[in-house]
Protein backbone atom coordinates (compact mmCIF):
# COMPACT_ATOMS: atom_id res chain seq x y z
CA UNK A 1 0.00 0.00 0.00
CA UNK A 2 1.23 3.41 -0.87
CA UNK A 3 1.44 5.88 1.98
CA UNK A 4 -1.47 8.25 1.94
CA UNK A 5 -0.61 11.88 2.17
CA UNK A 6 -3.29 14.20 3.39
CA UNK A 7 -2.57 17.86 3.29
CA UNK A 8 -3.10 19.76 6.52
CA UNK A 9 -5.12 22.36 4.63
CA UNK A 10 -7.63 19.78 3.52
CA UNK A 11 -7.80 18.31 7.00
CA UNK A 12 -8.54 21.76 8.41
CA UNK A 13 -11.24 22.08 5.77
CA UNK A 14 -12.69 18.74 6.85
CA UNK A 15 -12.68 19.77 10.50
CA UNK A 16 -14.48 22.96 9.52
CA UNK A 17 -17.11 20.87 7.73
CA UNK A 18 -17.67 18.78 10.86
CA UNK A 19 -17.98 21.95 12.88
CA UNK A 20 -20.49 23.41 10.42
CA UNK A 21 -22.66 20.38 11.13
CA UNK A 22 -22.22 20.96 14.88
CA UNK A 23 -20.37 17.64 15.18
CA UNK A 24 -23.71 15.88 15.13
CA UNK A 25 -23.70 12.12 14.77
CA UNK A 26 -26.81 12.22 12.61
CA UNK A 27 -24.99 14.31 10.00
CA UNK A 28 -22.48 11.56 9.23
CA UNK A 29 -23.68 10.99 5.67
CA UNK A 30 -23.62 14.70 4.86
CA UNK A 31 -20.13 15.01 6.31
CA UNK A 32 -18.97 12.04 4.24
CA UNK A 33 -20.38 13.65 1.09
CA UNK A 34 -18.46 16.86 1.77
CA UNK A 35 -15.34 14.91 2.71
CA UNK A 36 -15.40 12.99 -0.55
CA UNK A 37 -15.77 16.35 -2.28
CA UNK A 38 -12.63 17.61 -0.55
CA UNK A 39 -10.40 14.57 -0.93
CA UNK A 40 -11.94 12.89 -3.96
CA UNK A 41 -12.25 9.70 -1.91
CA UNK A 42 -12.50 8.54 1.70
CA UNK A 43 -9.26 6.93 2.87
CA UNK A 44 -9.12 5.29 6.31
CA UNK A 45 -7.38 8.33 7.80
CA UNK A 46 -10.20 10.62 6.75
CA UNK A 47 -12.73 8.24 8.30
CA UNK A 48 -10.70 8.19 11.53
CA UNK A 49 -10.81 11.97 11.70
CA UNK A 50 -14.55 12.09 11.01
CA UNK A 51 -15.18 9.44 13.68
CA UNK A 52 -13.35 11.52 16.25
CA UNK A 53 -15.00 14.78 15.27
CA UNK A 54 -18.52 13.30 15.43
CA UNK A 55 -17.73 11.06 18.42
CA UNK A 56 -18.81 7.83 16.72
CA UNK A 57 -16.78 4.65 16.29
CA UNK A 58 -14.66 4.38 13.18
CA UNK A 59 -16.26 0.98 12.59
CA UNK A 60 -19.60 2.74 12.32
CA UNK A 61 -18.21 5.28 9.84
CA UNK A 62 -16.74 2.47 7.77
CA UNK A 63 -20.08 0.65 7.98
CA UNK A 64 -21.77 3.61 6.31
CA UNK A 65 -18.99 4.16 3.75
CA UNK A 66 -19.05 0.49 2.74
CA UNK A 67 -22.86 0.43 2.55
CA UNK A 68 -23.33 3.18 -0.03
CA UNK A 69 -21.80 2.60 -3.44
CA UNK A 70 -21.38 6.35 -3.95
CA UNK A 71 -18.64 6.45 -1.35
CA UNK A 72 -15.24 5.20 -2.37
CA UNK A 73 -12.08 4.44 -0.45
CA UNK A 74 -9.95 4.40 -3.57
CA UNK A 75 -8.61 7.60 -5.05
CA UNK A 76 -10.02 8.40 -8.48
CA UNK A 77 -7.61 8.91 -11.35
CA UNK A 78 -6.74 12.25 -12.86
CA UNK A 79 -9.13 11.27 -15.67
CA UNK A 80 -12.03 9.27 -14.27
CA UNK A 81 -13.57 7.04 -16.94
CA UNK A 82 -17.26 6.24 -16.40
CA UNK A 83 -19.02 3.75 -18.63
CA UNK A 84 -22.78 3.94 -18.91
CA UNK A 85 -24.57 0.69 -18.21
CA UNK A 86 -28.08 2.02 -18.76
CA UNK A 87 -30.42 -0.15 -20.83
CA UNK A 88 -29.72 1.51 -24.17
CA UNK A 89 -25.95 1.48 -23.75
CA UNK A 90 -26.06 -2.04 -22.44
CA UNK A 91 -27.92 -3.45 -25.45
CA UNK A 92 -25.58 -1.57 -27.76
CA UNK A 93 -22.52 -3.29 -26.36
CA UNK A 94 -21.36 -1.35 -23.27
CA UNK A 95 -20.02 -4.54 -21.81
CA UNK A 96 -17.52 -4.95 -24.65
CA UNK A 97 -16.44 -1.35 -24.08
CA UNK A 98 -15.80 -2.11 -20.38
CA UNK A 99 -13.77 -5.18 -21.30
CA UNK A 100 -11.66 -3.14 -23.70
CA UNK A 101 -11.02 -0.38 -21.13
CA UNK A 102 -10.04 -3.02 -18.57
CA UNK A 103 -7.64 -4.58 -21.07
CA UNK A 104 -6.09 -1.31 -22.26
CA UNK A 105 -5.72 0.25 -18.80
CA UNK A 106 -4.94 -3.08 -17.13
CA UNK A 107 -7.22 -2.36 -14.14
CA UNK A 108 -10.63 -3.55 -12.96
CA UNK A 109 -13.79 -1.55 -12.44
CA UNK A 110 -13.43 0.58 -9.31
CA UNK A 111 -9.64 0.68 -9.61
CA UNK A 112 -7.08 3.30 -10.52
CA UNK A 113 -3.98 2.89 -12.69
CA UNK A 114 -0.70 2.84 -10.78
CA UNK A 115 0.37 6.17 -12.31
CA UNK A 116 -2.85 7.71 -10.99
CA UNK A 117 -3.93 8.84 -14.50
CA UNK A 118 -7.08 6.79 -15.04
CA UNK A 119 -9.78 5.20 -12.92
CA UNK A 120 -12.63 3.06 -14.14
CA UNK A 121 -16.26 3.14 -12.95
CA UNK A 122 -19.72 2.24 -14.18
CA UNK A 123 -22.81 4.39 -13.94
CA UNK A 124 -26.45 4.26 -14.93
CA UNK A 125 -27.81 6.37 -17.80
CA UNK A 126 -26.42 9.81 -18.43
CA UNK A 127 -29.46 10.82 -20.53
CA UNK A 128 -27.67 10.53 -23.84
CA UNK A 129 -29.25 7.28 -24.95
CA UNK A 130 -29.27 8.44 -28.59
CA UNK A 131 -25.48 8.25 -28.47
CA UNK A 132 -25.30 4.77 -26.92
CA UNK A 133 -22.97 3.31 -25.94
CA UNK A 134 -21.70 6.29 -23.98
CA UNK A 135 -18.53 6.88 -21.96
CA UNK A 136 -17.59 9.87 -19.86
CA UNK A 137 -14.01 10.93 -19.28
CA UNK A 138 -14.18 13.60 -16.63
CA UNK A 139 -17.08 15.72 -17.87
CA UNK A 140 -16.55 15.01 -21.56
CA UNK A 141 -19.02 12.67 -23.28
CA UNK A 142 -17.97 10.17 -25.93
CA UNK A 143 -20.81 8.50 -27.89
CA UNK A 144 -21.44 5.74 -30.43
CA UNK A 145 -18.33 3.96 -29.30
CA UNK A 146 -16.90 0.71 -30.54
CA UNK A 147 -14.26 -1.32 -28.71
CA UNK A 148 -11.77 -0.21 -31.36
CA UNK A 149 -12.19 3.46 -30.41
CA UNK A 150 -11.20 2.86 -26.77
CA UNK A 151 -7.46 2.92 -27.51
CA UNK A 152 -7.76 6.34 -29.18
CA UNK A 153 -9.63 7.84 -26.23
CA UNK A 154 -7.00 6.60 -23.80
CA UNK A 155 -4.22 7.90 -26.03
CA UNK A 156 -5.85 11.34 -26.02
CA UNK A 157 -5.30 11.62 -22.25
CA UNK A 158 -2.19 9.54 -21.81
CA UNK A 159 0.14 12.35 -22.92
Amino acid sequence: MATIKLSTNKIDELRAVCKSFNHEKGELINVLHKAQGIFGYLPAEVQEIIARELNVSVAHVYGVVSFYSFFTMLPKGEHPVSICLGTACYVRGAEKIIEEFKRVLNIGVGETTSDGKFSLACLRCVGACGLAPVVLVGDKVYGRLSPESVKDIVAEYAK
Binding site: S57, V58, A59, H60, Y62, G63, S66, F67, Y68, S69
Partner: peptide, 26 residues
Amino acid sequence: CNDVQTVGVLSAVNRGFMSVVAPAFE
Protein backbone atom coordinates in the same frame (compact mmCIF):
# COMPACT_ATOMS: atom_id res chain seq x y z
CA CYS B 1 -19.64 -3.86 21.73
CA ASN B 2 -21.22 -0.48 20.98
CA ASP B 3 -24.12 0.19 23.33
CA VAL B 4 -23.06 -1.69 26.46
CA GLN B 5 -19.28 -1.60 26.30
CA THR B 6 -18.90 1.50 24.08
CA VAL B 7 -15.77 -0.06 22.64
CA GLY B 8 -17.08 0.46 19.10
CA VAL B 9 -15.03 -2.21 17.37
CA LEU B 10 -17.83 -4.11 15.63
CA SER B 11 -20.19 -2.75 13.02
CA ALA B 12 -22.22 -4.15 10.17
CA VAL B 13 -20.30 -3.34 7.00
CA ASN B 14 -20.96 -3.75 3.29
CA ARG B 15 -24.39 -4.32 1.84
CA GLY B 16 -26.93 -7.03 1.16
CA PHE B 17 -25.54 -10.54 0.76
CA MET B 18 -22.01 -9.22 1.26
CA SER B 19 -22.76 -7.65 4.64
CA VAL B 20 -20.80 -8.88 7.65
CA VAL B 21 -20.15 -7.72 11.19
CA ALA B 22 -16.54 -6.58 11.26
CA PRO B 23 -14.06 -4.09 12.71
CA ALA B 24 -13.33 -0.87 10.81
CA PHE B 25 -11.86 -1.42 7.35
CA GLU B 26 -12.45 -5.12 7.89
